[in-house]
Simulated assay, not measured.
Amino acid sequence: MRKLVILIMLIVGLFSQKQLVNANMQPKLKKEDVLFVQVNRLYGGTRSFKENDGYEEAIISKVVNWINTASPSEGVIELESNKTPVISIMKIKMKNGDVAVIEPAYNCVSENQVKTCTIADGEVIFTGNNKKVRLESFELYDWLLVGWKYESIGAPKDELLEETLYTKYYSYLDKTYSDFVLCPKIDKIERINGDTRRHIVHVSALNYSAHHGGALFDRIHIALTDTPENGVKINKVTIQNGISEKESRMQCRRES
Rank of each mutant, 00 (worst) to 15 (best):
L4D: 11
I11F: 14
V12Q: 08
G13P: 10
L14V: 12
S16M: 11
Q17M: 12
K18E: 13
V21M: 10
V21K: 07
N24R: 15
M25S: 09
Q26K: 14
Q26A: 12
L29N: 09
E32L: 02
E32D: 11
E32S: 13
E32N: 10
V34W: 02
F36H: 10
V39R: 01
V39K: 00
G45I: 04
T46L: 08
R47S: 13
F49K: 06
K50T: 14
K50E: 13
N52M: 12
E57V: 12
A58I: 10
I60N: 09
S61L: 14
V63K: 00
N65R: 11
I67V: 15
N68T: 01
N68M: 02
N68S: 02
T69P: 04
P72K: 00
S73D: 14
E74M: 08
V76D: 01
E78S: 11
E80T: 04
S81T: 15
N82Q: 10
K83H: 06
T84M: 03
P85R: 06
V86S: 06
I87Q: 01
K91Q: 15
I92G: 04
I92V: 07
I92F: 02
N96A: 03
V99P: 13
Y106I: 07
Y106N: 14
N107Y: 03
V109Y: 03
V109T: 09
S110F: 01
E111F: 14
Q113P: 00
Q113C: 04
Q113I: 04
V114G: 08
T116E: 02
I119L: 12
A120W: 01
D121G: 04
V124W: 04
F126C: 02
N130R: 05
N130M: 04
K131V: 02
K131E: 00
R134K: 08
Y141M: 03
L145G: 05
G147P: 01
W148R: 01
Y150C: 08
P156F: 00
P156V: 05
D158E: 09
D158Q: 09
E159M: 09
L161E: 10
L161D: 09
L161C: 03
E162N: 05
E163D: 08
T164S: 07
T164V: 05
Y166K: 03
Y166W: 06
K168M: 11
K168L: 15
Y169A: 06
Y170L: 11
Y170F: 15
Y170V: 05
Y172N: 13
L173A: 12
K175C: 11
F180L: 06
I186P: 00
R191C: 02
I192L: 09
T196L: 14
R197A: 14
H199R: 04
H199Y: 05
V201F: 03
H202I: 14
H202A: 12
S204W: 06
S204P: 10
A205S: 14
A205W: 03
Y208T: 07
A210K: 09
G214W: 08
A215V: 15
L216P: 12
L216G: 06
D218W: 11
I220P: 00
I222N: 02
A223F: 14
A223R: 10
L224D: 02
T225E: 11
G231Y: 01
G231N: 08
V232S: 13
K236R: 14
V237H: 04
I239H: 10
Q240S: 14
S248D: 06
C252Q: 05
C252Y: 00
C252A: 05
R253I: 06
R253L: 13
E255P: 04
